[in-house]
């Protein structure tokens, strides 16, 4: 079957998760008070960012390491590093 939802898509991907997040919200207050659109919750292709009322939940385990959030966060509020060597997403095909 061809996938229909992001959950189905993410299920196809192999992740070798580190125990520590490679993505850090620098200041949660900035998301709360300065950022109306919270666009990271929209454009992130791995649906890593979820707004939970007062704070940004970061599901780094499903990150494709594309870098979009670091570049497009309007407040430059995301510290973005590579996961530890050998960890993170493992593409098997393309």
């Amino acid at each position: 079957m061809s996938t229909k939802t992001i959950e189905e898509k993410q299920y196809l991907v192999r992740f070798k998760c580190d125990t520590k997040s490679h993505l850090t919200i620098i200041n949660h207050d900035v998301c709360n008070t300065k950022c109306d659109d919270k666009l990271c919750t929209v454009f992130c292709p791995g649906e890593v960012y979820k707004w939970e009322g007062t704070r940004m939940q970061v599901g780094y385990e499903g990150c494709h390491e594309c870098g979009s959030c670091r570049i497009a966060c309007p407040e430059q509020n995301i510290k973005w590093e590579y996961p530890k060597g050998g960890h993170g997403i493992v593409f098997r095909l393309a």
Binding site: T3, K9, Q10, L12, V13, C66, S68, F91
Partner: peptide, 14 residues
């Protein structure tokens, strides 16, 4: 073109 196909991997990149 995709009819009957089986998704095998999903990938994102810049």
């Amino acid at each position: 073109y995709l009819e009957g196909g089986e998704s095998a991997e999903y990938l994102a990149h810049l």
